[in-house]
Design a protein around this nucleic acid. Structure first.
Length: 254
DNA sequence: ATGCCTTGGTACCCAAGA
């Protein structure tokens, strides 16, 4: 089973890129983030054999799951804060496997209510995943975590030290997820740094390879033993009018 | 470096992203 996560930075602008990727890579499941629309296209995906479930929002955020196999929606909001209306969380069951798609808050500037919200949101996520583990539910969670886990996951840690993506509070939240028993799918087969999933549009970040690794897959214990491979597909960053993020691909014996 | 781009929404600039 091939599963992909990709922050597309507006599905309206990136539909042709997504369709090209689906044709070339033919994943079983695609999780998308930052749709930036209230409604996500469906017919173009159906033509390629994918059903979909989207949680949209006007102008901001937005997540969707595409799948060749039927999607059973389990949750479309992250529990723990009733007033939270931001479209950042989808939890589904596909072929008996729990699939979670997240778009975690950015958290900048700092300090701010946005940073406080980020930390609260990640604490809520930790609670939800702990609940699933205690319930014996195997799962794969993928998405834009907006966290640089370690110094080797960015080109120049000094420039990120006071950024919400690398602040120690954010990294502690990521570590807390790993401490639940989850596996960073990419890291397990790539202990060296210098592999990135995002390059800023500004200051020639892509041609200089000044990137950061913030798009991740975490595998629950039973699923981690079934991982075949995990790789970052950087080529779409070089396509015309690209997203600033690229797809991350995990393959499981499932 | 406050900056550099890109996007959407509302106007032709602003917020947000990371």
């Amino acid at each position: 089973m091939k599963i992909v996560t990709w922050n597309v930075n507006s599905i309206g602008m990136r539909l042709e890129h997504v369709l090209r990727f689906l044709r070339e890579e033919s994943p079983d499941i695609l999780m998308m983030q930052e749709l930036k629309t209230l409604t996500c296209p469906t017919t173009e995906f159906e033509a390629l054999g994918y059903s979909s479930h989207a949680l949209g929002q006007k102008a901001y955020n937005g997540v969707a799951i595409l799948s060749k196999a039927p999607i059973i929606l389990m949750q479309d909001r992250l529990s723990g804060e009733d007033a939270d209306e931001q479209a950042r969380y989808l939890e589904a069951e596909i072929k008996g496997l729990r699939i979670i798609n997240i778009y975690a808050p950015n958290g900048n500037p700092l300090p701010s209510e946005k940073f406080d919200y980020k930390l609260r949101w990640l604490a809520r996520l930790q609670m939800r995943l702990q609940h699933l583990i205690q319930g014996g539910v195997p799962f794969v969670i993928g998405g834009d975590f907006n966290i640089i886990p370690e110094a080797k996951d960015c080109h120049d840690p000094k420039t990120w030290m006071d950024d919400a993506l690398y602040r120690i509070e954010s990294r502690q939240k990521f570590r807390a997820l790993l401490n639940l028993g989850l596996t960073d799918a990419f890291r397990i087969q790539n202990s060296n740094g210098g592999h990135y999933s995002f390059w800023d549009y500004q200051a020639g970040a892509w041609p200089r390879n000044h990137g950061i690794r913030i798009d991740h897959f975490l595998l629950s214990p039973l699923i981690a033993d079934r991982m075949r491979s995990c790789r970052i597909e950087a080529a779409p960053r070089g396509w015309e009018k690209p997203s600033d993020h690229v797809p991350v691909i995990v393959e499981l014996d499932f």
